[in-house]
Amino acid sequence: MDDWLIALIKVVFIWVWVLLIAVIMTWVERRGASMIQDRLGPNRAGPFGLLQPLADGIKLFTKEDIVPDKAKKILFSLGPILFALPAFSAYAVVPFGDKIVLGGKEIILQVSDINVGFLYVVALGSMAVYGIIVGGWASNNKYSILGGLRSTAQLISYEVPLGLALLAITLIYGTFSLREIALAQQGTFLGVFPNWGIFKQPLGFILFIVTAYAEANRVPFDLPEAESEIVSGYHTEYGSMRLGLYLFGEYVNLCTLSALIVTFYFGAWHLPYINMAAFLGPISYGIASFLVFFLKVSFFLWLFVWVRWTVPRFRYDQVMGLGWKALIPLALINLFITALAIQLTI
């Protein structure tokens, strides 16, 4: 029963934490965008405009919930749920810290350490597309359908290099478990570099981060919702909290992808050259590892915003060309080199 309680607390904690980050991200995105564009952004609600997400939330909740007349009613309500659900569930396998000792009991800071965690993440990443497809189809609007179509094609294309880039990581660490991958990144590598994934897989990292942007439908791959071409893509017909769920799911997705980048390539909760476990007490070590992890995650969240307001959108054929003609061959070469290096060194 005790274990159940701990698991429940972990689930609730990480859920609330991710929700909070997603909420803050809406504010970071708006202020970051405005500062890059020589503006100040929303700075009225609360100190530095920090209460702006709350105001937005109240607005979305109190708006009229409109379902278009010709829309497929059931599918239309199903879409946002299908979109947000995989985004939330992916956090179940992400290790958000090492471990914490409370009352003589060692608690691993991860909801569930399943031995196929890596594949679970890939599987859920591919499920997120259904929310977009269903939303686009049910809206009965040409722009929505175009958005859904683009998103389908894009996700199929970028799933492959994503999986291949991650396969190279599993080749190096010899496990599918995210916690074991994170644990293996302690210490240094070749005496100089921190033992992080990025130093062993530089090409893999670039592939992963590019495909992560495509999976999250972020600029420069935001074709499913390209405002200048197809109004706002799959959520053109959505309003009030259904739209809120789509936007929210997007930020939770960003959060998950950033956590994955940190776990696979940036040493999860490890600091370079410093072994925190050596000089911190069991409780403070747990908290410190959690904070270090989220500091890294927040950098990548910021990177998503930063890139969004720097790079213009790709054309559709360019996206497809990049996926099939550049990323997949590169991912295969990366996998081959990794396998060769492991074969030669063992």
Binding site: L119, V122, A123, G125, S126, M127, V129, Y130, I133, L149, T152, A153, L155, I156, E159
Partner: peptide, 15 residues
């Protein structure tokens, strides 16, 4: 099952 059938093949069908 989820990755390949639900995530790839069915997405193609839907496409």
């Amino acid at each position: 099952q989820v990755t390949i059938y639900a995530g790839a093949i069915l997405v193609l069908v839907v496409f």
